[in-house]
Structure formats: structure tokens, C-alpha cells
């Protein structure tokens, strides 16, 4: 039973970081900061999935949500910068 309370406290911490990062992702004017913040939201979501005993989902989210999708965002950003210049 004690584990449950510790997990809940960790989950509250992770959740508040996620919410702050989500607000940063929306309010910040620099696109790169917004993309990184969205990646952080995904990464912490995968930790939360692990706490909620869903290891399969956590693996997928860590690999795809925070790895590959951040990468393709940066490809698009790089191309837009190059075309703007």
C-alpha cells in the first residue's frame, strides 16, 4: 500500500512538469522550443504509462512519441528555415 502513495506523489510531480511543458509549447514564440517542449511532454507521458503498469505503451511512446516525431518536426523546421533564407 505504501508503494501506491509514493507512485501517486511521483505521478503528481511528473504531471505538473507535463502541464507546464504543454503550456510552454503553446505560448513560446520560438518554434524549436515548442517542439522540444512537446517532446518532453511525450517523454514524461511514457514514464507515467510505466507507473500505471502499461510497459508496452511506455516503450512505444518513448520510441515514437518523443523520438521519431520530434525528429520529423525538426526536418520540417530545417527545410522551412532553408527556404526562407
Amino acid at each position: 500500500m505504501n508503494n501506491e502513495i509514493i507512485y501517486s506523489v511521483i505521478a503528481i510531480g511528473i504531471g505538473s512538469i507535463m502541464l507546464i511543458m504543454a503550456v510552454i509549447a503553446i505560448l513560446n514564440n520560438k518554434l524549436s522550443v515548442a517542439i522540444i517542449a512537446a517532446g518532453v511532454v511525450s517523454l514524461f507521458a511514457s514514464v507515467l504509462f510505466l507507473l500505471m503498469s502499461a510497459p508496452d505503451v511506455a516503450m512505444t511512446e518513448a520510441a515514437i512519441g518523443s523520438g521519431l516525431s520530434t525528429l520529423i518536426f525538426f526536418y520540417v523546421l530545417n527545410k522551412i528555415k532553408r527556404q526562407n533564407a
Partner: peptide, 16 residues
């Protein structure tokens, strides 16, 4: 791009 970023955040929220 910001709209797409918000879309990914919404996606994560629904999965959660």
C-alpha cells in the same frame, strides 16, 4: 507548425 504541436499534445492527453 504550432497547431500540429498542439495536436500531438492532445493526442498524448487522450492516450493518457
Amino acid at each position: 507548425i504550432k497547431i500540429i504541436v498542439s495536436f500531438t499534445i492532445l493526442n498524448t492527453g487522450i492516450n493518457l
